[in-house]
Amino acid sequence: MFAFIIRRIIQAVIVMLVISFIGFSVQHSIGDPVRDMVGERVSEAEREALRDKLGLNDPFLTQYFRFVKNACYGDLGISYFHNKPTMHVILRKAPATIELIFATTIIILLITFPVGVYSAINPNSWFSRVVMGVSTIGVAVPVFLTAIILIYIFGVELQWLPAFGRGDTVNIWGWETGFLTKDGLLHLILPSISLASIMLPLYIRLIRSEMMEVLETEYIKFAWAKGLNRYRVWLLHAFKNTLLPVITVIGVEIGILFAFTLLTETVFQWQGMGFMFLEAVERADTALIVAYLVIVGVMFVVINTLVDVIYGFVNPMVRITGSK
């Protein structure tokens, strides 16, 4: 097991080096820190001197190693638009995105489990048929369209819910949270429902099919034969065994959810990491883009490594096939 963890960590480090190399190449080929730092009036000779001082005339690899070394200390350069370290800019935006994903996950869990289980138990009821029909169509509806329709209905026509921004936030130990104010929670409703809408059809189908499979097994038949209460059979015997595959999938899907926050945040002008990234693209803020790339890379590498290691604990097969 120890060897397995070590191997996964080495792999993660290699992946990070590859990602940082891509990030650095991007910065090296399209970014110009000198232009970002000085105004129009600075002469060519002064620019050249600045270049030398910053080490921009060093060989590519030397610069790359300096980039990696700085990155390890958490220094990913300075955003010329915000005039602050990029790390700082991104971390300040992170709570908004994390809260959005958190709220979305809660909505997904609250809806998919009851609906999925119900439609597995009663596959022929009209409700299950409607759910399955809607979820078939739902797979094809892009998240931004759902968001726009929700904004039009609840934000423009009915004017029940705010359609953009985060509303009032409270600062707790440096974490800007919208969970503690009524306004913040109201602002959270539409974005998180839109974001949840991409996952709902998939999860409902997944839970339904897992549950239906379990209901066919021998031990469920035996439980029926014993004459147990049906809720006991459904919820205690069957449902518990659908959880494991569902939870493993959820671990992976959080990453996809993160990808789609880019779209959701744009529609709702949600001040998170995705919105910041797209603003950076518009302003050609290369340093910020590269920092985003590296931080997102770290995030995915950490998540994937953790998932793999947990998997290794739960399922010894992974360790064995991985070690050959």
């Binding site: 992946v15 590859v18 991007v26 399209i30 990453g255 996809i256 993160f258 990808a259 789609f260 880019l262 990234f277 693209v281 050609a284 290369t286 883009i289 985003y292 790339l293 997102v296 890379g297 995915f300 590498v301 994937n304």
Partner: peptide, 20 residues
């Protein structure tokens, strides 16, 4: 490695880089 990062993130970052 690429599979572990959602395709949409790859596509968005790639087009951002191309655009700049």
């Amino acid at each position: 490695i690429q599979f572990s990062i959602p395709y949409l993130i790859v596509a968005i970052i790639a087009s951002a880089v191309f655009q700049i």
